[in-house]
Each structure stands twice: as C-alpha cells, then as structure tokens.
Design a protein around this nucleic acid. Structure first.
Lengths: 116, 116
DNA sequence: GTTATAGTTAAGCATATGCTTAACCAACGC
DNA sequence: GCGTTGGTTAAGCATATGCTTAACTATAAC
C-alpha cells in the first residue's frame, strides 16, 4: 500500500530531479524496461535503479519483473494528485482576483473581469 | 533574473517540503508578511526565512520590504509551468491510450473510447 | 555447462538540506 | 533615546541525497 503519510512530499521530491523527470516523460509514452530507461542517461545502472526506487516510492511509477527484465509503467493517479494540488492553488489565486475585480467593478463598471 | 537553467528542478524541489506547500497555499489566498507566514508553523523564524528563500529562488514567490515588514506574494507563472509539465505528461499518456483504443476498435467496433 | 545479459545490493563519498541558537540590524512606538 | 517588533545572517549539526564502484544474482542464449 502506498505510503499515505506524505504522498505529495514524495511526488514533488521525485519530480525535483531532472533525471527522474526524463524517466517520467519516457514512461508517459509507454512502458519501458530498466535498460531502456537507462539508455539515454549518462550515469551508472545502479544510479538509474536508485532513481526508479524513488519514483516507485512516490507512486508515480509501478514495475514488475518477468524473467530477467523489469518493466516500468507510469501511474497516472499520482501525477493527477500533484496536478490537482497545483490547480487548486491557482484556482484559489484566481478566485481572489475575481473578488478584487468584483470590488473594483462597483466603482468602475467598464472594468472587465480578467482570466488567465 | 530568475535562473533559467533548472527552473523546474527548483519549483518541484520547493514544493517537495510540506512547510513550503503550506506557505504557497497561504499566499495563493493573498499576500502575507513573513510573520503571518510563520505564525502557524512550529519552527524558528530563521527557518521560515530559509524556506522563503527557497520559494523565491524557485520563482514561486516574490517579496518586497516596506519599512521593517517584508510582504510576500505568489507568482502564478512558476506554478503554471509546473502544472503544464504535469498536464503534458498526462496528455501524452492519454494520447497513447487513445491510440491503443483506436487499434482495438479495428477489431471490436463495440469497444468504446475511454477517458479519465 | 558456460557465457552474456539484465538487474540488484552494499558501502563509501561529496554535497545538499532543514533545522537550531546566537547575535545582530533596521524600523516603529512611546 | 529606549524598548519593542520584524526580520536577517552565520555557524553548526544531523540527516538526506545522488552518484560511484565492486560484487553479486537470476535469467536467457548458445
């Protein structure tokens, strides 16, 4: 069971590293083996596997072993939660702008509501 | 000038800490002084200021000093870039599902396109 | 059975991080 | 001018992180 204690900590921390973002980007286009993930990266294989472990602990990636090959898949739910956290903060910020706009409109009817 | 070299590194790293997410959440509802940001946090003032520095380096937050009070504001552009990075990867994943769906539909016309 | 391949684990190292306390500075209020 | 308030900086500490190499294991190919 995914650690529920600090999932967003782990997700954002996982994405804080450029190597892991490359891996997430690759897996968003389809599953890949560890060797395939490692191929474009200029680092040792154990280093890639360490990054993979961080991604699995964060819930962004899932993997299974078949024979000697471990295949990795994206787990979109964790990406969605991070995206939702950001979207909610942006919505909060924009709601505050709307309230400012409403306030200004009491005095300046020509003022238009702003959207970003 | 904001460091352009690794902006997403810094943004995701900034968001990887629960204290900083609390600060970003608070600022998404409107500006706040350093003391206001520190008030709900169980840590020393210099620690809060260190977190603030990480948020400013990431571009998520901007602050200015007036007299002895430093007021902090959210900077939505950096949040938007992080949100966009996530949205593009989710779109990539979903595009791949669509192609799988198209492929399956060649044999099974009753199969319906799936959306998440 | 041997060799090659895919991957794993452990130990070590350098660097980064997150917090503390102490000391300090600038501005406000009285 | 003094005390209070808001904030800053530096140093130190414990822990976390990201990479390496070496050694190893399991599986597949021959």
């Amino acid at each position: 069971m995914l650690n529920q204690r600090a999932p967003l900590d782990r997700v954002f921390r996982a994405l804080a590293d450029p190597t892991r973002r490359v891996m997430v980007d690759r897996l968003s286009r389809g599953p890949a083996s560890v060797s395939e993930l490692a191929q474009p990266l200029a680092m040792s294989l154990p280093a890639v596997i360490q990054h993979l472990q961080v991604l699995e602990e964060s819930g962004l990636v899932r993997s299974e072993k078949a024979g000697r090959v471990r295949t990795c898949h994206i787990e979109p739910a964790a990406l969605r939660r991070a995206g939702q956290w950001i979207a909610l903060r942006r919505a909060s910020w924009e709601r505050r702008l709307d309230r400012l706009g409403d306030y200004l409109e009491e005095d300046e009817p020509s003022n238009q509501r702003r959207r970003s």
